[in-house]
């Protein structure tokens, strides 16, 4: 029984991470509408309930920059060299399209769930 629960928990954790992976790109692109460096970006996301560890964030930033969606520059601030990131115009366009896709998936999911559930389950008891 314990192993079944454990395996269900493991499966949930894997699926949760998979589900979050795509949405992290949207969150990072949206957060970088304001210029930030890695550490403050991570903190900003965490404040909004999106925890992301360094080993995920920095490779993601690097990939988005390679894909031409972000621009970065090294600059000194508070006596330390920091790399500042900001979304560029291509990134803005891609973000808009991703958001549209996100909303479309959300609406479709809603429709699927509403179709399956009873009205009480969807809207609560009347």
């Amino acid at each position: 029984m314990v192993s079944e629960t454990q395996s269900a928990n493991d499966a949930f954790e894997n699926l949760r991470l998979e589900l979050r992976r795509g949405s992290l790109v949207i969150a990072v692109l949206a957060a970088l509408r304001d210029e930030r460096y890695g550490y403050t970006l991570r903190k900003t996301l965490a404040e909004h309930g999106i925890d992301i560890d360094e080993s995920t964030l920095y490779p993601l930033l690097r990939r988005l920059e390679t894909q031409g969606l972000l621009s970065s520059q090294w600059r000194e601030e508070e006596k330390r060299n920091k790399r500042f990131y900001r979304i560029n115009s291509s990134g803005e366009q891609v973000l808009e399209r991703l958001l549209a896709e996100w909303r479309s998936i959300d609406a479709s999911l809603d429709a699927v769930l509403n179709n399956r559930n009873t009205p009480e389950e969807v809207h609560g008891p009347r």
Partner: peptide
């Protein structure tokens, strides 16, 4: 490049 950014992040934390 990577080590500079990682170092900065570690020191900030």
């Amino acid at each position: 490049d990577i080590i500079a950014e990682l170092s900065e992040d570690l020191h900030a934390q």
